[in-house]
Design a binder for these strands. Sequence first.
DNA 1: AATTACATAGAAAACGTTTAAATTTAGGCA
DNA 2: TGCCTAAATTTAAACGTTTTCTATGTAATT
Lengths: 346, 346
Amino acid sequence: MATIREIAEKANVSIATVSKVLNRKGGISQETVNNVMKIARELNYRPNFTARSLKNGQSRTIGVITEDLTVFNTPEIVDGIDAYCENNGYHYILGNLRFNKRFGNQPDPEECAKLVHSQVDTMLSKQVNGIIYVGYHSRAIAPVYNYEEIPFVYTYCYSTDPNIPCVLYDDQKAAYEATQLLIDRGHCDIGVIAGPTNSIHSANRILGYQEALYANKIPFNPKHIVYGNWERDIGYELSKELIQSGVTAIFAHNDLMAAGVIDYCTEHKIQVGKDLALIGFDNREIGTASRPKLSTVSLPLFDMGQTATQVLLNILAGKHIQRGQKVMLACTIIERESTMPASDSC
Amino acid sequence: MATIREIAEKANVSIATVSKVLNRKGGISQETVNNVMKIARELNYRPNFTARSLKNGQSRTIGVITEDLTVFNTPEIVDGIDAYCENNGYHYILGNLRFNKRFGNQPDPEECAKLVHSQVDTMLSKQVNGIIYVGYHSRAIAPVYNYEEIPFVYTYCYSTDPNIPCVLYDDQKAAYEATQLLIDRGHCDIGVIAGPTNSIHSANRILGYQEALYANKIPFNPKHIVYGNWERDIGYELSKELIQSGVTAIFAHNDLMAAGVIDYCTEHKIQVGKDLALIGFDNREIGTASRPKLSTVSLPLFDMGQTATQVLLNILAGKHIQRGQKVMLACTIIERESTMPASDSC
DNA sequence: AATTACATAGAAAACGTTTAAATTTAGGCA
DNA sequence: TGCCTAAATTTAAACGTTTTCTATGTAATT
């Protein structure tokens, strides 16, 4: 690779002059500028990013740690980070932890923490100016040991440390709107298939659900909430319970469990969309593949990536950020075939 | 961040000594080693990767260019690259082109090329030692203008330049095996719903299909091959044609079109798995969501990532590589419910 | 006591840049 | 001619490392 020095030699000027020309600093005669530029082009010169950032002491680079790139939704968030970086003259380096292949569904917090630490170390070594942590478990598994050292922003999960800013989607609002849709379609006996009882996401969604019932003066029946494990089979099981207890609509807290509901209904000749209204959560591909197509809640993934980056770059630019700021982004309701008007209203 | 210089001061030794200790070079007394190590730990020292690679003139870093990270399959390939790099002491930097959001289904080769060039420029700037190009169109859209400058390896797509090594999956073999499965299940009138006529992948799959027919002494009927556009709707349309012409099994060249076949059959009370055998390609989530569950071909994505990296690192290590080498990795057949034995055999 | 050998440590240059300060050059004016 | 100014260019140091070569001190050998 050609260096500034080689250009200087060919052009019969000093390396300082070349540097100034290349960085458009001015104070150089037009003739010299032209000549240097021409030679740089001829030599196919490319500035050495490494040398430059060593000298300048700044890399304009942020680190992006993903708990698992292959987990659905993560790439879309990274895409948002990518776009925002590009539009703001920043670079990023990706550090993928591969939690899924390493740990499956039972991540060992100890081991996870080690991976995060070593990734953070590597990134600090590479002089990043800040780090975005993209989780996929509701709460980041691995605590960040010393976040004072470098600005951190979490997205797609709550941070373990309440002082670190998070960029999240608004579960409660989304659940409110999903429930309202069901109510608008004429339902008042609305069941909920939630995630595990310890899920923050489900807890917030239940809040939104209750809020919507309250706003519509529909009494809340605790029996209408049942708890699953996010898997398809449990959706099948729980829908039986719910339907037998008389609900005419179900709000499943993810599309997989909603697919289980459809399985059960198909098997028992209950027409989803006619006899039972159903809405899921996540907007996965499975929702367009099912019969009927599934109404669902779509997550603002790309936007989360962009916003997380924006928050981080703001911090880097010295803009005052409230400690522990939580940015909540709105989801969008996608109505498909599984939520048609019920025959009778309440 | 602490530097080697600060450590040297605190330890009352020269920076050369510190460097030697940190790099375990030997020739330093145990006492000094202990002292320097202790101070380094106290100061939370982390080597400056930038300075180090500037000095050494090597980054042990490769570039990974993805045409689109959010396109299904890409993250899994990157995961493989990640794993292989980690196991071999290499770093990688990701450059995501976001073709999908930028261009949709009609990528402009001119614009694509520009993006690739600028990404390659950036990576060369950052002193990468080689580049892996992860495509998703059958042939890389953007030609690499000057591959002499740095080793390139393509994966998941054919390169525009025949001299660049590619790591691919073996369409022909997979198609052979998929067809053989249909034959084993008792079918001899086997239709094919291929991709567009200009698809290299489909062309190879048709070859494998014909080969299997030949091996089983089943006459080849050109009418049994119809061409689609990879979309679900076209699967619906074409299955009508095929079924009317008397096939009892269909090999769809992707899962989406296979889903369209199921749509048609469900609507016309044809029982897939009983009246009609069906196998798709790609192993997308949709195949487990459909009723019946779809038999399909699973791509060796992770393996492709690993192998592409292996090929690149071999080149970097100076191992002789045949120009234009094509590495073909085997797919796996996944049998689910859509390929049950037919009632009569041929 | 002089020489050699070895273990340990340090000095200095280098990697490819940027930049403040110094120097050269040319032109304008008394 | 001599001086001043502004423009153009160069010098040199610095960023944080690694590494070669050299220097020092001590112990072993003659």
